[in-house]
Design a binder for these strands. Structure first.
Lengths: 341, 341
DNA sequence: CTGACCAAGGAAAACGTGTTCCGACGTTTC
DNA sequence: GAAACGTCGGAACACGTTTTCCTTGGTCAG
């Protein structure tokens, strides 16, 4: 049947998927020779090589990666353990990782543990059974997590391992906060306050530390810790205004908080950024771009983080192991909430 | 080394990962017998079985799924092709699919094509090489897509195949709209308008059709098509009010639109739901719950959709193929934007 | 003319498992 | 006592590929 799309042949196409033996038979050579011809190894006459390749093409031969894997000792697959794949943090990390891996012909095995240790154990076992070449571990919080015990290279992305010897790639939250503050100081703001998430969250603490460090004497009050919500942004702003009536900049620990702050400021009739400049954190498009005005915010570059994590893993798999924590820079995205129109 | 966590042994643990041969040798039986003992097949004395199992436990033996796969003809893996894994629609679908598959010991191979036909071809080839048992195809839009050509069972989730014979699982957008409207009618609303996304989007059209059908004479104006944004919600509300000053309910095609509508109504001093009731669509928590007031909305039950898709796929793999379109019901989530406090 | 060397390709083993077939042994039945 | 039968376990092959080693035949130098 000539017409129709390019059917990729497999065991269910009707007949069996062609094996290298079939290719070899058609080309009139031995399976070993066919393998060499297709992989460009060994020493073969050009004519033979072409004949084999033509036979493979004709049969629509796709080498079975399981056989190849068994023979090579590598599975060309890595597991991705995530504590919640629906988190908006793990998603871009996954995307970046997949990006880097697919370039290296590696596939990603998705494992969503839902923060359940039992599920995690189950998945680790399954991944071990599949003899994955490596593992990427990610989550939705920046708290260090206890390392996984597994006999292949592991990279922790976004949430580091508690073992400082393990490979971890994380966001430099503190530097992000510093960038935001410096941006505001550069615009002449001198009465800066900081509203952020729960104090027990490491990212909140890191960002607050960055703000305190960078703002120096321009910090008009101690940071307020609350929750990662718009509601807290609105409430927190009220608190801040009571304490610092003449504040001219609010550095927020998340875009949600910043959006709440903007909303409340508008309700109070204070112009943004005319009277008060506002910055967010995370560059979560749906928040940052939909806010009125759109938010100047700190992009975590999570896709790049995922990519780097995957690259590190590939290196380790290829026998060039790295170790320790890699802190990636963030990127300030300036929008109307500090710049105006 | 006894201390430390439960190391899952693999080829990199230092020594080689133990093979079934090693287990057999330790138990004093042949590899074939060991296989039978571990899998509960064949006829063996209980004592022999136990001896083998004990040996396996002692060695920390994990059967190599590649060998097993080669022998059984099944790979126990399915590919997940998504046009964008960062979309908030594909994520819950993936989660649900993974949920159903992991129960059946199947793994998910993640393939994000980024809507690029070249990448898709690449991934299809790779998945074919891995001899996946099946394929789930999903995307971020509800438009039917051209079927993939591959020799294994395929289920289309969220976005159906253009071939009505293919297995597809989709959201019943129309029924969702009907539910929302009936909810409003039940609350006594009689001047209903509808604001939704771009007319070229099938989901917008389906939802609009449902609204028109269910509202009947209570529909105060033709639906307005615009975009899926809060900004359009605000603008659209102005249009609607100009045309229907006494409207008492706005059915929105998305939570973003609904949120914009609520914001604008508040700015205009019209109470929600006192004067105007508002419904959203999608039950996107960050929108629906953060809106003021929180949105009554239509949950698409995407996780369940993913689960069903996976279940259908498993059935097909096990030789019980289904066919045609499965339209899953949505679920109305009532919140303050229609009910008040 | 012979020995050394090289190119080309084949045979066989390896990767790890599951399954089929068959033989050995012990028990039962006539 | 012999034939039939059931239980248990081993040998061999299958799955599909890669790689190592070896053979064959040809060419070149001495």
């Amino acid at each position: 049947m000539p017409g129709g799309g390019p059917v990729i042949p497999t065991s269910a196409t009707g007949a069996r998927a062609p094996r290298i033996t079939d290719v070899a038979a058609l080309a009139g050579v031995s399976p070993g020779t066919a393998s060499k011809a297709l992989n460009g190894t060994g020493s073969l006459r050009a004519e033979t090589r072409d004949r084999v390749r033509e036979a493979a093409r004709q049969l629509g031969f796709t080498p079975d990666s399981r056989g190849r894997s068994l023979s090579s000792g590598r599975s060309y697959a890595v597991g991705l353990i995530t504590t919640d794949s629906s988190g908006r943090f793990s998603i871009p990390v996954m995307t970046g990782a997949e990006d880097a891996l697919s370039a290296g012909e590696l596939m990603l095995l998705l494992c969503d543990t839902r923060d359940d240790p039992l599920r995690e154990r189950h998945y680790l076992r399954t991944l071990a059974a599949r003899r994955v070449d490596g593992l990427i571990v990610t989550g939705r919080r920046t708290e260090p997590r206890e390392p996984v015990q597994v006999g292949v290279p592991v990279v922790y992305a976004f949430n580091p391992s508690t073992d400082p010897e393990d490979m971890s790639v994380v966001v430099d939250d503190r530097d992000g906060a510093v960038q935001a503050v410096q941006h505001l100081l550069g615009l002449g703001r001198r009465r800066v306050v900081h509203l952020t998430g729960p104090q027990r969250h490491r990212s909140a603490g890191d960002r607050a530390a960055g703000v305190v460090e960078a703002a120096g004497s321009s910090l008009a009050a101690e940071p307020w810790f609350g929750e990662w919500s718009e509601r807290w942004g609105r409430q927190g702003l009220d608190l801040a205004l009571r304490r610092v009536p003449d504040l001219d900049a609010v550095v927020c620990g998340s875009d949600q908080i910043a959006r709440g702050v903007c909303d409340r400021l508008r309700e109070l009739g204070r112009s943004v950024p005319g009277e008060v400049a506002v910055t967010g954190f995370d560059n979560w498009p749906v928040m940052a771009e939909a806010s009125r005005p759109p938010l100047t915010t700190v992009d975590l570059e999570l896709t790049e983080l995922g990519r780097r994590a995957a690259q590190l893993l590939i290196d380790a798999i290829d026998g060039r192991p790295h170790r320790g924590l890699l802190r990636l820079p963030t990127r300030l995205v300036a929008r109307a909430s500090t710049l105006g129109e």
